[in-house]
Amino acid sequence: MDNITILVDAPILLVQLLLDGLLAGAIFALAAYGMALVWGVMNIINVSQGEYVMLGGFVAVLLAEAGIHPMLGVPLAALLLYLLGWLIYRLVIFRIVDRDLFISLLATFGISILLQQLANQMFGADVRTAEGELGTSFLFDGMVTIANIKLAAALIAVLTGGALWLFLKKSRLGQAIRATAQNARAARIMGIDTDRVYATTFALNAAICGAAGALVAMTWIIHPYFGLVYTIRSFMIVVVAGLGNLLGVIAAGLGLGAAENFAGFVLGVEYQAAFVFTLLVVILLARNLLLGRKRQYLK
């Protein structure tokens, strides 16, 4: 109750919470975008999602430690993770496309453990950060402060999301990816090399996560074992947005980010996650009811 009183007394804090939530949500949305892509096209729930975010973060951290601005880590992480994604597809993932969902869960879970331990061996278990040193913006007489890195991160996240959406809509490869997602067999008959499409999709996902990770390292913190947080968030956002709805993923990411921040403020941070998961259940139930009604109508 006290917390609501604070908000009533200082409504400007609502702006702070909203902005913080939206900006955080944008980065989560980026990682979720990749997951939606792989899930939609390959029917694989990739639980090693967060590990690509983590590896992307280490790229930015290592650059910063070498005296190079970590912002360069965004494209570099995307590139390196693209290659890693391709490699992982060629080694493991191609064996599990079209297989049981359970197998893909197990395989990607294995990859996630492997990547965690490798990162731990290579970079150590310490908490790391990359300093972008972009400063802070002040709004409303300094009552609302936004770290510029968060603004930049959100901008990059939205731009990347938009570019991807265009790529899928307009380019030949993008169209091939969508065709494969709709009906892989038909796509194959039409002469699309679905194996290549899958490889590209998986590598693209890793690249997106890598870029998100570089932003995470500049905004918050990273260490080899924090991937799971991002996997779960991505999963949640994709479930809320629904498969095959890439713009919905961005909307869900931003919305969940903001909702989470408000819940954290009003209910206390210990209920933040509980609130978001409850919201998830409510959304799923509501959607189920709506669908149920639709079916009845069609009868």
Partner: peptide, 20 residues
Amino acid sequence: DKLPPEINDMSTSLTKVRAL
């Protein structure tokens, strides 16, 4: 405030600090 162990953001708590 009790932060969840997988915490990666403290901004909500700090917003309260600014207010109080």
